[in-house]
C-alpha cells in the first residue's frame, strides 16, 4: 500500500506526520519504506537520521545539437512546447533548464542533428533508519525540473508492505508526479484561513486525480473551526486531529521523531495509521 502525505503549502507539519507514520509502522514489524519526494528541500532525513548505504546520480536526458549537421531550419524550436530551443542566425541554442526531456525535437529534426545525453540533475540517496527503508532525492541547486528526480525516487523504492511518500508542498507538477499511483492521499492542514485556502486547492487536485484522500488537521487546538465546517460540507473525512504542544515543537527543533518523544501525539499517529491502512474512508 502506498500512502502519500501532502499539503497545499509548506510548514503545516507534513514531514513530522510522514516521518512519524513511517517510523511507527516500521517498528510494528511491517516492511516499510519512507520516500522523500520533496527533492528541492528534502528534510525527512533530519528526523529519521538514516544510514545511507548507496548514492546514485539522477540524470535527465537532454538534447545536444551537432553543429556540423544542423542547417538552422528552426523546426526543433517550433516543435518544443516548452520554449527551450532558440534558432538564431547560425546557432541553435538549447536551454536545458527548461527542457522536459520529451524527445520532440529529436523526432522532428530532418538532419538527425540532435541526440540525447544524460545530464546529472541530482542525487539519489538510499539507506535505512532502523527497520525503516529510506530513499530521498536531492535536486542540484539551480535545477528547476523536479519531476524527473521524483520519478527516480519512486523508481528506487523497495518492494515493501507500506510505502509512505513525503510530497513536496503545493499543488503543481511535482506534487502530481509524487501522488501518481498512490492508494491513499493524506492532506495535512492547519486550522487557519491560509491553511483552509491551501487545503481547498489540494482537495481540488485530489479530486481531479480521482485519488482517495482524507485530511489531517495539525495544531488542531489552535486557530478557528473553518476547516471542520468546510470538510463537513464537502463530506471529506478528517482522519486525525493532532494537538499543538510545546513538546512537539521542541522535539522538532531537536530533530527527533515526534512519535518517539511525545506520547500524546504518538496515540494520534497510531490511530491515523490504522485508519489509513484499514482503507475505510473513501
Amino acid at each position: 500500500m502506498k500512502i502519500a502525505i501532502a499539503s497545499g503549502k509548506g510548514g503545516t507539519g507534513k514531514t513530522t506526520i510522514a516521518t512519524s507514520l513511517a517510523h511507527l509502522a516500521a517498528t510494528d514489524g511491517r516492511t516499510v519504506a519512507y520516500l522523500d519526494c520533496d527533492v528541492e528541500e528534502p528534510n525527512g532525513h533530519l528526523f529519521l537520521k538514516p544510514q545511507i548505504l548507496r548514492e546514485e546520480p539522477i540524470n535527465k536526458l537532454i538534447p545536444v545539437v551537432d553543429a556540423d549537421r544542423c542547417t538552422h531550419c528552426g523546426l526543433c524550436s517550433q516543435a518544443c512546447r516548452f520554449g527551450a530551443i532558440a534558432c538564431v542566425g547560425q546557432q541553435t541554442l538549447i536551454f536545458t533548464e527548461l527542457c522536459h526531456s520529451c524527445g520532440g525535437c529529436l523526432l522532428v529534426c530532418p538532419q538527425e542533428a540532435i541526440r540525447e545525453v544524460p545530464k546529472p540533475i541530482g542525487l539519489l540517496r538510499i539507506g535505512t533508519s532502523g527497520p525503516l527503508q529510506f530513499v530521498e532525492g536531492v535536486l542540484n541547486v539551480g535545477e528547476a525540473m523536479s519531476p524527473p528526480a521524483i520519478h527516480a525516487v519512486k523508481d528506487a523504492a523497495p518492494d515493501v508492505d507500506l510505502t509512505i511518500l513525503d510530497c513536496p508542498p503545493g499543488t503543481s507538477c511535482p506534487v502530481i508526479e509524487s501522488v501518481r499511483g498512490c492508494d491513499h492521499l493524506l492532506l495535512v492542514t492547519e486550522p487557519t484561513p491560509f491553511g483552509l485556502n491551501d487545503l481547498k486547492l489540494a482537495v481540488e487536485m485530489a479530486r481531479a486525480l480521482k485519488l482517495r484522500f482524507g485530511v489531517a488537521v495539525n495544531r488542531a487546538n489552535t486557530g478557528d473551526r473553518e476547516v471542520w465546517s468546510y470538510c463537513r460540507r464537502q463530506r471529506i473525512d478528517i482522519l486525525a486531529e493532532i494537538p499543538d504542544d510545546r513538546a512537539v515543537a521542541e522535539a522538532y527543533s531537536r530533530g527527533e521523531i515526534v512519535v518517539e518523544s511525545v506520547p500524546q501525539v504518538a496515540e494520534c499517529i497510531r490511530s491515523l495509521l490504522e485508519t489509513l491502512q484499514s482503507g475505510a474512508p473513501a
Binding site: 524550436s77 518544443c80 516548452f82 520554449g83 527551450a84 530551443i85 532558440a86 534558432c87 538564431v88 542566425g89 541554442l93 536551454f95 527548461l98
Partner: peptide, 19 residues
C-alpha cells in the same frame, strides 16, 4: 504567443526579434 507561454517566453521573443 509568448504572452501566454508558460515558460521560455524570453527565449522565444528573442528569437522572434532576431528573425
Amino acid at each position: 504567443q509568448n504572452l501566454n507561454a508558460l515558460q521560455g517566453a524570453g527565449i522565444q521573443a528573442a528569437q522572434a526579434v532576431v528573425n
